[in-house]
Amino acid sequence: MRVPTDKEIEEAKEYLRQRLDAELSMRTNLQIVMIEAAKQIIDISYRYKISPELFRFSANRQLQEEVDAIILSLLEIIEDYTYTLAVATHEDNKDAIITCITRESYGKTFTQRAREYVDRFSKEVETAIAAGLLLNLSKDKLLSSIRQSVKTPLLNEHVQRAISKGYPIISRLGVQESFGVGRTVSSWTALSDLTEYAVAEGWMKHWELQAKACGAVGFFVMRGSSYPCNICDDEVGFHVEWDKLPPYHGHCKCFAVPVSAI
């Protein structure tokens, strides 16, 4: 089996760079749409005259329905961004890419996981709004704090201040301190990991199909970063099993160089 040429290695590296740009775009757009959803929910919630000490979305059926509609829309937007960036310019393999990233994995589909995480986001925003009402915050000030604490929403300065004043809003609203595989502490982290990984998988599915169409019989995996990772180290080398393509974990920067028989 021949060794990949320098040209082939550089082409694989360039493909990785483009893939990472798509992942970064996913992360950027995800934060934008989540903050916009939070703004809409804040605007709606502040219109209802619910006692701050008792505030929760379910305190008013119409409020709950409006919030649910925003969360459903958020889910649909996140799915659309993910599918669009996973396919990118590889329209010829669109169906195979979408099938790949929406498949069931470890008992759940992409949509099922995303639904869990946007529901979690709803609880995080509900908690922040409860704090905002208790502290008589402006909508803009509350939204700014949500943006700043997106990675650690329960440590939001206003949530913590409300708790320090004797209002146990986290326990009252039944918000788990951590959740999901790996016990993450924010819906942002969970959704970012989920969507960026799906985008990466979509790009690598196209890479696989394109390589096979060009007669590749396998691929050579190389590290694309220097940080210590036993998982990635174990995969370096030649493979003929196409299900062994990177990414091997979230934010994996290994790249694969297709190898032909000649």
Rank of each mutant, 00 (worst) to 15 (best):
R19F: 01
R61T: 11
E91D: 12
K151D: 15
R27C: 02
F121I: 09
S186G: 06
E157C: 03
N136S: 13
A69N: 11
D233I: 03
A261H: 11
T5K: 07
Y46C: 14
A38I: 00
S144G: 11
F255T: 00
F179Q: 10
F110M: 14
S171K: 13
R115F: 10
Y83K: 14
H251K: 11
T102C: 12
T5R: 10
R19I: 05
Y167L: 10
S164F: 09
Y227Q: 13
R17F: 09
Q148Y: 08
P153W: 10
G250T: 11
N136W: 06
A22R: 15
I71A: 12
T5I: 09
A211W: 04
K165I: 01
V87R: 10
K108H: 11
D233Q: 10
T84H: 07
D119R: 14
G182N: 13
M34R: 04
L16I: 02
P258V: 05
P258E: 08
I77Y: 10
L143G: 11
I129F: 12
E11V: 03
E10H: 03
L134T: 08
D95P: 06
A213N: 07
W242E: 05
V181N: 13
S187M: 06
H251P: 01
W207I: 01
T189C: 00
D193S: 11
C232H: 01
V221Q: 03
I35R: 05
W242K: 05
Y248A: 04
D233C: 02
A12K: 01
E126A: 09
I170T: 14
T5M: 09
V236N: 07
A162M: 09
I101S: 08
S73Y: 08
Y117C: 08
Y248D: 02
A200T: 04
V240L: 05
V175I: 15
A211M: 01
S192K: 14
Q176E: 15
Y227R: 14
E11Y: 05
I50D: 07
K205A: 01
C100A: 12
V185E: 12
S145F: 02
F255E: 02
G107D: 12
E124Y: 10
T82C: 06
A261V: 03
S187F: 02
L75Y: 11
D43S: 05
T184V: 12
F55I: 00
E79T: 07
L134I: 13
I78Y: 02
